[in-house]
Computed example of a mutant assay.
Amino acid sequence: MPWTTRDAMSLKQEFVALARQPGSNKRELCRRFGISPQTAYKWLERYEAQGQSGLQEKSRRPATSPKLTQTALEAQVIALRQAHPAWGGRTISCLL
């Protein structure tokens, strides 16, 4: 018996197609596909809002970072590091 190899996108498409049929049991489909109900409803909501492109994997990178270093300070650190390659972070931090 050969192994069935399918990518995640085709499985998502199949799940959404089956789940959107009238009278479908979404919990049973979740068990069959091996996903949680939260994931299933997330996929269905994304499909309703964005169509086929909503099933694509989304980046998990945060949209903002509250502790991000300001670009001006970053430029100063890089300039000092290039001018004095032997200096470490402690020395550069004390100077700035």
Rank of each mutant, 00 (worst) to 15 (best):
R46V: 02
L73D: 14
N25L: 05
Q50D: 03
R46G: 02
S53G: 05
T39L: 15
R20E: 04
V16T: 08
Q21D: 09
F33E: 07
L96Q: 08
L11V: 00
T69F: 01
Y47R: 11
L11S: 03
S53C: 07
P22T: 07
R31G: 02
A40W: 13
L18A: 12
T69H: 01
F15D: 04
L18N: 07
K42M: 07
L55M: 02
Y47C: 14
S65G: 05
Q70K: 12
H84E: 06
E14A: 13
I35S: 04
T69C: 01
P66W: 05
P62C: 12
Q70R: 14
T91D: 11
R60Q: 04
L73E: 12
E28R: 14
T64K: 05
L73P: 02
W3A: 15
R27H: 11
F33R: 07
Q56N: 12
R27T: 08
A63H: 11
A79C: 10
P22V: 05
F15R: 04
P62F: 15
A40E: 15
E74P: 00
R61W: 03
R60M: 01
L18W: 01
V77D: 07
A86S: 04
C94E: 02
E57S: 11
A72L: 05
R27G: 11
Q38M: 15
C94S: 03
M1G: 13
W43S: 07
R60Y: 00
F33I: 10
E57I: 03
R20I: 00
E74M: 01
H84F: 13
R81A: 15
L96D: 03
T64N: 03
A79Q: 12
A19I: 01
G89L: 15
S10A: 11
E74G: 02
Q13E: 08
Q70T: 11
Q50R: 02
A86C: 02
Y41R: 12
R27F: 06
Q70W: 09
L18Y: 01
G89I: 15
Y47G: 12
Q13T: 03
Y41N: 13
R32C: 09
T4R: 07
A40C: 12
K42E: 06
A79F: 11
L68T: 05
R60W: 00
E74D: 04
C94V: 00
R32Q: 12
L95C: 04
W87K: 01
G34E: 12
L80N: 11
R90E: 01
S53H: 08
V16M: 14
Q50K: 02
A63Y: 08
